[in-house]
Design a protein around this nucleic acid. Structure first.
Lengths: 138, 138
DNA sequence: CTTGACCCCGTACCATACTACAGGGTTTAC
DNA sequence: GTAAACCCTGTAGTATGGTACGGGGTCAAG
């Protein structure tokens, strides 16, 4: 029987994650429990692909699964009011901005280094990452 | 005997890390082996504080210790090949830029949501977070 | 109607990045 | 000159985020 939706395997492939990861996320509450067929097989909506990609993307940016869960749960919680959601979203924005700033500094330090060291010849030390270690105070 | 430099405990406190972490980083090669006193006690230079703060900062940005090590080792002295270092630095700049871009998108999506959701009802009708799972598709 | 691909569950194992001992010397402050 | 505070080493344990496996049902094709 073929109704709409994805099987675990299809979803895993589409989102480029391991099948086991789906179950893991489900246990953690990151992926909502999908409906099941009579056989017990999970049937995921197409949107699950985006959700997984979001999770993966956020992870690369240094968010923990717990933080990602917070982001994702903000919209489901009908008990929280808008002001609360707004406040938390705003806070996340600030966190994200801090990360961006730190990355910009890091990037600039590296670019500086690249420019300083374009000569192939002579001697002296090319002062590379001396600049970088100073950014982290934030 | 009190010569210049920091003991493990002082360094750990100054950099806000666990003392054990210092040894761990040393084992991993992230923190160079400092000179020792006759007793065997490590004597760290002040600069170790910055190095540790850099490591901590970079971690928050989603770099693994291995990647951080690469960054830190990228100082070119006379023994390293400049072209090689430049190439690697350029590559790092690109990955950093990717992170920045992803974070910008995330930020914009959240800011958009914050603007959309200005009322005071329940978050269920708040269009904000509907968008989250989809903004990562990029 | 069977066989191979797929799914289920529970549990065990893995890598990364710490963190915590245990057992034993060293320093420093009183 | 002794006790608290600190340092050493090696090794073991923890948390997070998966990943693998065994034992067993399910489904679609031939």
């Amino acid at each position: 029987m073929e109704l709409v939706g994805l099987t675990a395997g299809k979803l895993a492939k589409a989102a480029e994650v391991n099948v086991e990861t789906l179950r893991y996320y489900e246990r953690r509450g990151l992926l909502p429990e999908p409906p099941r067929k009579a056989s017990g097989y999970r049937v995921y909506p197409e949107s699950a692909v985006d959700r997984l990609k979001f999770i993966k993307g956020a992870q690369v940016l240094g968010f923990t699964l717990e933080e990602i869960q917070e982001l994702l749960e903000m919209r489901l919680d009908t008990k929280t009011n808008r002001a609360d959601v707004r406040q938390r979203a705003t806070k996340k924005v600030a966190t994200i901005q801090e990360k961006i700033d730190a990355l910009e500094q890091m990037k600039q330090a590296l670019e500086h280094l690249v420019h300083q060291c374009h000569g192939s010849g002579s001697s002296a030390e090319c002062p590379i990452l001396e600049a970088i270690p100073t950014f982290s105070g934030t």
